[in-house]
Design a protein around this nucleic acid. Structure first.
Lengths: 255, 255
DNA sequence: AGCGCAACCCAACTAATGTTAGATGTCTAC
DNA sequence: GTAGACATCTAACATTAGTTGGGTTGCGCT
């Protein structure tokens, strides 16, 4: 706790983004209890692997600043299966799963808050409502996976890319990091290709296509979106599945 | 409870498959407590929609007999994002999510056990270890989603189909429903196509391809697998992600 | 038996994506 | 400042998948 308070002073964003995705469903008191669960704030370099597939861990990690991706590898080929923005509890999974089935890697430098598993255990025993919110946060990941499966099954590469950037923009907006006209990201075209199941060359063709249509201009980490609504329409992007404000939003009733 | 006991006598498989996936991690006592959570056993016809996207529900459903799929729809096009075999807790998600982001549909007739949400709430308050197992069961769905995202990103249609059938065979085996040389399923080629993000025509080509290679013979719901190991190799199928007996298997330590 | 429907099968053509082989630009290490 | 690494971009050709327009088979119904 002390360590965390110190870090909090040093990195004023830390507190702000804690459980960004859940903030609408948490009482002020729960928010404080969640912050109390944090034992330390840690920095990582670009490319760092926070957790590797098959490892056990005693901590779970909340992303405070930066971008992270979940990856799986097969025959030396990397697949990116999801990504995370500040405010996401990136590996709460490894609390209940113990051994994780995937890797979590930093894209660009990142700051994270660590939550020891014994504090989560204590919460499970003491605080059913907060437990349920933590559970919810992992189910949200599953819902994002499902949406992404659908998009892989239905969309062409340019539309997949449009969908990814729509989602990133929207999720950044949900934690107060959005700009209406775009955002900056450490993702490369080749990372995006690995998210789409396309080759980097084909992803590049798709980016050129989106540029020609004036839907999305991506250059060296700078994403410019001239018209958000048009991009969403092209990608068939409907943000309900993010469980933000839309149809599916979580009710704040008590457990 | 009474209702359930009656049904249990009438359908002797009911108890056998309860929480099939979790059975190795549960004590006998927990198993009984889980069975106590069941309020009723219900039958469904082929094509029935158990839960529709956007609905709330007071019950969660455990699949006792039959096959089910999770579907999402966009522009009238159906995507199947995952499937379930007996022993799976198919919509525990809607306990923590409240409004579900997807549909759950029966493929062929099905028997399910219903678990009221207030009993799950009680479990969350009383029994941290069983709660954690329930949580685990939903995280398992997320792990399956991730594997499937990777396969969509990496494999051609024939290999995707080989992977799906490898997984089904394996999951049936894990709950004692396997045959070494194949299985029966109410899935049609067109269902499988919707799982792969391919057209039914292309799926048919892929089935012909698999038949020619003598890896998998699928005809009218009858799946014959001449050599399981060869099919797995062709599909690059490694069942660790099912969290059965492999590297990643859940430890049975207490919460 | 004969009808109708659904699942399955097939071929020819078109569109999307992968592969190979580069060229160019930008940043960092030395 | 130069070399090397890496990201981006492009073109030509090969493979995979979608589309169109059929045909065949099996099964339930009357």
């Amino acid at each position: 706790m002390i360590a965390f308070e110190e870090e909090l002073r040093r990195y004023p964003n830390t507190g702000r983004f804690l459980a960004g995705r859940l903030r609408h469903s948490m009482s002020q008191d729960e928010r404080l209890r969640l912050e109390d669960m944090v034992s330390a704030v840690v920095h990582h370099e670009a490319g760092d692997r926070i957790i590797a597939r098959g490892n056990t861990c005693d901590n779970s990690t909340m992303l405070v600043e930066g971008f992270m991706v979940r990856t799986l590898e097969s025959n030396g080929k990397r697949s990116i299966v999801s990504f995370h923005v500040p405010g996401d509890f990136v590996d709460l999974h490894c609390f209940a799963l113990k051994r994780l089935d995937h890797n979590i890697d930093c894209i660009g430098p990142a700051t994270v808050a660590q939550v020891p598993h014994d504090r989560i255990k204590a919460t499970m025993a003491d605080d059913p409502h907060l437990s349920r919110l933590l559970w919810f946060s992992t189910l949200l990941d599953a819902a994002l996976h499902r949406e992404w499966i659908m998009k892989l099954e239905q969309l062409t590469t340019p539309r997949r890319i449009a969908h990814i950037f729509s989602e990133i923009g929207c999720r950044l907006g949900m934690v107060g990091l959005g700009r209406p006209d775009g955002f900056d990201t450490p993702l490369t075209q080749s990372d995006v290709a690995d998210m789409c199941g396309a080759t980097a060359i084909h992803a590049n063709r798709a980016f050129a296509d989106l540029r020609r249509r004036d839907l999305l201009i991506f250059e060296r980490g700078r994403v410019h979106i001239p018209d958000c609504a048009e991009l969403h329409a092209y990608a068939d992007f409907h943000p309900d599945y993010l469980y933000g404000e839309g149809d599916l939003a979580l009710e704040t009733e008590d457990a």
